[in-house]
Design a protein around this nucleic acid. Structure first.
Lengths: 214, 214
DNA sequence: CTCTACCATTGAGAAAGATCAACGGCGGAG
DNA sequence: CTCCGCCGTTGATCTTTCTCAATGGTAGAG
């Protein structure tokens, strides 16, 4: 896996204190595992460009995609010195990495991470509501609204860079249930499927109602 | 609700910069709603003593307990200037509150919050795995292990300060399913129920296996 | 151009959990 | 002390989602 295409020292978050804790920018292909759950947690990372998913596994192989990340989001968090999640790119991405020790030395970095952690924690709270209390159809509606930037015009079509299995692992469903939910949304006219991975939201109002005011 | 019993200016995190952003410690009775989802987010809070649960509601009344907090944990997070969750005490608690602006002025506070956010984000990742991929029995086992401090001796009994409904709302189940799971764990000898809210873990190994190495 | 993965869709049957309902116990109010 | 109300338990049934299985589409390799 780890098909890191390019690595260069970062022009990102450079500051006088950072002499021995350099930031590095990685350019990574799609479908690359950037880090592994359980590995020693040496660095903390930010998505600069692209999309990354964080996953956790149960011993028997059940998988949960715990978070979907875009530009600005932070990952590589540690519990007991080990990464709590694996991270895999969904699209070609640029990732900025920092020594963990830089957190104590670089207040600008620390402040940015603090703001971002707060945002990501709020998103996780919403996701808990989705996973704990929403039906399959509601989950898929929520997922599509979350991907579709608010200001996006009605005509624009959304490209999904996830398979049905990945969406299912994110929403706590099976791939068949996700597929059925897509078909149901299409049948109700809330959504148009140009291709399996090309979606247009037709009736945003009904989608929002389904997703519980997302 | 809001039965605040006592308020006093905090001896907590006092620092020279904090002249106009004082910390305040609140002493709060059990079963008190400390803040409401949607209210303007003016302050950020830390649990000093006691236990707090964060909840979110869907428009039709379905509820999810998104996080359980103990001493050191932070809440009062905001999305768009409004609290993302309601917060309710489970036991009599002491809560320290800070102006949000203190975050920019008090680096000690900011550093503490950064560490805590990272820990809470990791816990939320685990919880997503629980909600998305675990069976009812596994969820309840996970819940009990999470409450039972690691070092706790076999003989010690755990007091649950949550009703079956609250546990269900935390685990994404119904209260009946939670009750059945407790009975099943008892029947299998993994747990002893002295009273409905008094539990002893009898077979920690089997519990850990059920909970997927929690 | 064709073949071949892989991915998505759809259907039928099974299982887990939700819902509806009745009963029992414990604790606080009077 | 007794009553009443809330909470928990258990049972029966129903719904949703999972599981298993077959079929169809699409994109990349040869």
């Amino acid at each position: 896996m780890r098909q890191i295409i390019e690595e260069r020292t970062g022009s990102f978050s450079r500051s006088p204190q950072l002499v021995e804790a350099p930031a590095a920018n990685l350019r990574v292909a799609a479908h690359t595992t950037v880090l592994h759950e359980g590995d020693p947690a040496r660095r903390i990372m930010e998505v600069v460009e692209g999309a990354v998913m964080l996953t956790k596994l149960l011993p028997d192989g059940r998988r949960q995609v715990v978070e979907l990340l875009g530009p600005g989001d932070v990952f590589g968090l540690a519990h007991d010195e080990a990464y709590a999640c694996s991270a895999e790119t969904l699209t070609p991405s640029v990732i900025s990495t920092h020594e963990r020790s830089a957190l104590e030395r670089d207040p600008v970095l620390a402040a940015r991470l603090l703001r971002r952690f707060e945002a990501q924690l709020c998103v996780m709270h919403s996701h808990a509501l989705v996973l704990g209390r929403m039906s399959a159809l509601e989950r898929v509606a929520f997922f599509l609204l979350r991907l579709m930037p608010e200001g996006m015009v009605g005509g624009a079509t959304l490209h999904l860079s996830m398979t049905r299995q990945e969406i299912a692992d994110f929403l706590g469903l099976t791939l068949e249930t996700v597929s059925r939910a897509f078909s149901e949304l299409k049948r109700r006219g809330l959504v148009a499927l140009l291709r399996a991975d090309e979606v247009r939201i037709q009736d945003r109002g009904s989608m929002r109602r389904l997703a519980g005011a997302a």
